[in-house]
């Protein structure tokens, strides 16, 4: 994860209430949760700092009301943060003029909303072409681009349908196509699939993975669903009461949760599909027999390791032995959640 930093957030605060700025000043920029509560203010986002790296999928999780939406609405400037600093590709996001902000939104950012946010009076094609239309792209070109996007999300043939005539999954495809139409560099998705039923959700997740493999965008993705998160994420950030309690790779979150709250999230996670062999590997054991690949998830090698009588060697991509893995290690990793 040494890729270049695309978005940098430092000490972001977002406080709702009568006069949040004055309140912040009174508490010297760092009010305690108790102070907030007493004054009747809501600290939707409290002192959050993190980076988004170019090309990664960063997933933000947390219980309802923990401030996830508010956080990305701060980054997209749909809400102005009460305090803090934000940079986008080195530019101070809080100091850009309205014109520049509109420009950034027109060309750099795309966003998908939980309840789709489609324009009810426009059909699919016009909805997808909408961001291009407001940029002033001429009609033939934007229609062509919109058609490409509609094909990308598999909605060809429905161009002249209106949002209310589409199923939830189809509407969200329109939302995705629209957000992609401007070829954004960074893509925000706020619980894009949570309004959908489980079958369609799984289908949309696969669809999403397929798209991402093709597009390789930087993504900030909000979800409630830890499984969804582990399926998609490079890193997961977990929020609680406005604070970012842990921001790490799925494996680390599963294996080394920062506190009980995080552990609770990870409890029912399918560890065998998250943890890779490299994470639980021990130093080289000369008595090892056979080998498994270091980057393999333990689920896919479990049978091999568990049925072997001796520890197995671990090899890297080049075939070099770099460690070993025992039956006990695999078993405890997979089953500890029941012990917890």
């Amino acid at each position: 994860m040494s890729a270049e930093v695309q978005i940098k957030c430092r000490n972001i605060w977002k406080i709702f209430g009568d006069n949040p700025k004055r309140f912040m000043k009174r508490h010297k920029g760092a009010p305690t949760p108790e102070a907030l509560k007493e004054a009747g203010y809501i600290g939707a986002v409290q002192d959050v700092s993190f980076d988004v790296h170019a090309g990664e999928i960063l997933i933000i999780m947390g219980l309802s009301g923990s401030g996830k939406s508010t956080l990305i609405r701060c980054i997209t400037r749909l809400n102005d943060p009460t305090a803090g600093e934000m940079e986008y590709e080195g530019r101070d996001l809080l100091k850009v003029s309205e014109r520049e902000l509109i420009d950034i939104r027109r060309h750099k950012m795309g966003m998908v909303f939980q309840s789709f946010g489609l324009l009810p009076n426009r059909d699919v094609l016009e909805n997808v072409a909408f961001p291009l239309e407001v940029q002033g792209m001429d009609k033939a070109e934007r229609v062509q681009r919109a058609k490409d996007m509609i094909e990308l999300v598999g909605l060809q043939g429905r161009e002249s349908y209106f949002p209310r005539e589409l199923s939830g999954g189809q509407q969200q495809r329109v939302g995705i196509a629209r957000s992609l139409a401007v070829e954004p560099d960074i893509w925000f998705l706020d619980e894009p699939f949570s309004a959908l039923d489980p079958l369609i959700r799984a289908e949309m997740q696969d669809e999403f993975m397929r798209l991402q493999q093709k597009l390789k965008k930087t993504i900030v993705f909000i979800t409630h669903d830890f499984e969804e998160a582990t399926k998609l994420a490079d890193r997961i950030g977990i929020m609680k009461d406005g604070r970012m309690v842990q921001l790490d790779t799925p494996e680390q979150i599963v294996l080394n949760p920062a506190d009980d709250y995080v552990a609770e999230f990870a409890r029912n996670a399918p560890r065998e599909r998250i943890v890779s062999v490299g994470t639980i590997m021990k130093p080289i054991d000369p008595s090892a027999e056979g080998t498994v690949l270091v980057s393999e998830k333990i689920g896919s090698v479990a049978q091999q390791v568990l049925t072997a009588n001796r520890p197995m060697g671990v090899v890297d991509e080049a075939g070099q032995i770099i460690g070993s893995v025992t039956r006990e290690d695999v078993a405890t990793t997979i089953f500890t959640r029941d012990a917890a």
């Binding site: 509109i102 939104r105 027109r106 789709f116 324009l119 009076n121 957000s179």
Partner: peptide
């Protein structure tokens, strides 16, 4: 006008005027 529609208009890069004429009034 639902908040999300206004916000999706904003994220599509609408200026204030476009927000009024192309998003809020039509919906």
């Amino acid at each position: 006008v639902p908040e999300e529609i206004v916000e999706s208009g904003k994220m599509s890069g609408c200026t204030r005027r476009q927000l009024l004429w192309k998003v809020a009034l039509p919906s």
